[in-house]
């Protein structure tokens, strides 16, 4: 350790960990001055602390336990629509507006069952391709939660511009590609390792030049309650894999009921 008692202006690293020296006046001690200054200029909230809430059971899936404002999410797999709706539910309940761009198949009753507040939901038909970017930017200006039909085509430059706008406005954009064709789907029964790599691939090759912050893949969906001519669909057990960039880089995995008996999302007992 250096003796810093006599030094007044040297940016020595020991300033940062020097305790109050009993020999000097604490008001003029350079270490305490710097600490006081750093307290003053410390940002009040970090960007990552500005979040929109998610329902409790989904919190372990996201890096901050909530949706980071300004982030872009991509949701895919069977059950993607349900997951996207559940992700928006808590924010909508807390007073945020949500908007859906495109996605003419979206079931509005299901949206209400998943917890979206219909009084604060706007539905916007998919615009002609040349006006898509302008439209998305306009929606992001006023709406916190935006659900975007991933089938809308945008150029790489446009999607980058929208991503920048998204970070600036602090909304959350969720892209979803619904699976509603008759084409058979390959059974998703892969090992954990290949699953993660699939998610990574789908992240890098995300359509239209988008680079999502988090990719959520729903897999292993198992409906419960339906029998051979009896019962009804009651709940579905799904596994969700999350892969992302930056703070969300660590792969996460979560098994939940989506929907649970009450129509929303719940933990597995």
């Amino acid at each position: 350790m250096f003796d810093t008692g006599g030094v007044t202006a040297s940016p020595s690293p020991s300033f940062l960990n020097a305790g109050p020296d009993p020999g000097t006046n604490p008001g003029t001690d350079p270490g305490s001055v710097i600490r006081r200054l750093s307290e003053l200029i410390r940002p009040v909230t970090f960007a990552r602390e500005q979040t929109l809430p998610v329902l409790e059971p989904l919190a372990p899936l996201l890096a901050d336990g909530a949706l980071t404002r300004g982030s872009l999410l991509r949701v895919c797999g069977i059950g993607a629509t349900s997951l996207a709706l559940s992700l928006m539910a808590a924010g909508s309940r807390d007073g945020s507006w949500s908007a859906v761009i495109g996605l003419p198949e979206l079931g509005l009753v299901a949206a209400a069952e998943h917890g979206l507040v219909l009084d604060r939901l706007a539905l916007i038909d998919a615009p002609p391709t040349r006006r898509s970017a302008e439209l998305i930017a306009a929606v992001l200006d006023g709406v916190d939660l935006v659900l975007l039909d991933a089938r809308m085509m945008l150029s790489g430059a446009e999607s980058r511009r929208i991503a920048a706008r998204l970070r600036e406005r602090g909304s959350v954009l969720i892209m979803v590609e619904p699976v509603c064709s008759m084409a058979p789907v390959i059974a998703l029964s892969q090992t954990s390792r290949t699953r993660t790599s699939t998610a990574r691939t789908s992240m890098s090759q995300a359509a239209g030049g988008w680079s999502p912050d988090v990719v959520l893949t729903v897999a292993g969906s198992q409906w419960q309650g339906l029998g051979e001519g009896h019962g009804t669909l009651r709940r579905r057990r799904v596994r969700i894999d999350a892969v992302g960039r930056g703070r969300a880089a660590r792969p996460r995995q979560l098994e939940v009921l989506l929907p649970a008996d009450q129509g929303s999302v719940d933990v597995i007992d």
Binding site: G107, V109, A110, E113, C180
Partner: peptide
């Protein structure tokens, strides 16, 4: 039909 309701409803 009882809940849950289909999340995708074909127009």
């Amino acid at each position: 039909v009882p809940t849950p309701t289909p999340a995708l409803v074909l127009p």
